[in-house]
């Protein structure tokens, strides 16, 4: 909208600022809480400015962990979460781009049936099929392993569907030109399809990384080994410590740390895929 009304501009900015304050305030409180002693947070009023225990709190949880919750250092949890999230994101992209390639470019019997079967699993989230999935994972002996955390979450109807829709927009002539240029299926995939999908891959990676990072229920179910604790299950474990008060200062520090990697991924990848978009737009 190109309108020149000073009043509208002022109102728009006020609304935006209010919205920003409302969304940013809890995050600020989290940060503030993570820099105080545990006792400071149970008193009234709650502090609104950072305290002096920043290094103490973060040092404690990063390297030795909260005693009450089994004492796993958060660094280990972050590492586990990173492995799981990367595994899920990369695995999902790899599997679904290949599946979409097969569905779009190859004529084989029951092609449509396969597509709709994949599509239908969209309607069944992890929570719904958690029992059979657990059963299979257990039978395969994947409990308490990284594979068990990652593999069952890799199949992705959403990503397959997105890649399929993207491949359908690629002109047929490009495929034909590649055939005339002597590019077989694998060469075409590697030399033409993959480079063209770069922006889609980047966008999906962001979404899927966060999806993997935020997994809570599955890691909780499939792993009992403390050394495999992910950050999300770790945080929750600290909330529900029996027979003691929640250690809010440590909990908040953990939350702050848990937020960082997804933010980092968004910031870094956004640059990448915005650049990609600009390039193709030219």
């Amino acid at each position: 909208m190109v309108e020149n009304r000073p009043w509208l501009t002022v109102i728009a900015h006020v609304v935006l600022l209010l919205g920003l304050l409302i969304t940013a305030f809890p995050v600020w409180l989290t940060f503030v809480a993570s820099t105080h002693e545990g006792t400071a947070l149970t008193q009234f009023p709650m502090p609104l400015w950072p305290g002096s225990h920043f290094l103490d709190n973060y040092g404690t949880i990063l390297f030795s962990g909260a005693k009450a919750a089994g004492g796993q250092p958060v660094l280990l949890m972050l590492g586990n979460s990173l492995i799981v999230a990367l595994g899920i994101a990369v695995g999902k992209i790899a599997i679904s781009i290949i599946a979409a390639y097969a569905i779009v470019y190859f004529r084989f019997p029951l092609r449509q049936t396969f597509f709709w079967m994949i599509f239908m699993t969209l309607m069944l989230p992890v929570e719904v099929r958690i029992m059979p999935t657990f059963e299979i994972t257990a039978n395969l002996g994947l409990l308490n392993s990284y594979s068990g955390l990652i593999v069952p979450l890799i199949a992705s109807a959403t990503a397959t569907f997105l890649f399929r829709q993207f491949f359908l927009t690629i002109p047929v002539e490009l495929v034909e030109a590649a055939r005339l240029d002597g590019a077989g299926p694998i060469r075409f995939f590697r030399d033409v399809l993959l480079p063209l999908s770069r922006t889609n891959i980047a966008a999906l990676f962001v979404i899927l990384f966060i999806y993997g990072w935020n997994q809570y229920l599955w890691p909780l179910v499939v792993s009992t080994d403390p050394s495999l604790t992910t950050i999300m299950t770790g945080i929750n474990a600290l909330v529900r410590v029996p027979d003691s008060e929640p250690q809010w200062h440590l909990l908040m520090a953990m939350s702050m740390l848990a937020m960082l990697p997804p933010i980092l991924v968004v910031v870094v990848m956004q640059k990448l895929f915005v650049r990609g978009l600009v390039e193709t737009e030219k």
Binding site: E173, R179, P195, T280
Partner: peptide, 20 residues
């Protein structure tokens, strides 16, 4: 024969250049 083995070259209406 496969298109690539016919030793012919084709120019398409929309050019079909590899954009990347």
């Amino acid at each position: 024969l496969e298109p690539a083995d016919r030793d012919i070259a084709m120019v398409f209406q929309n050019y079909a250049l590899y954009p990347h």
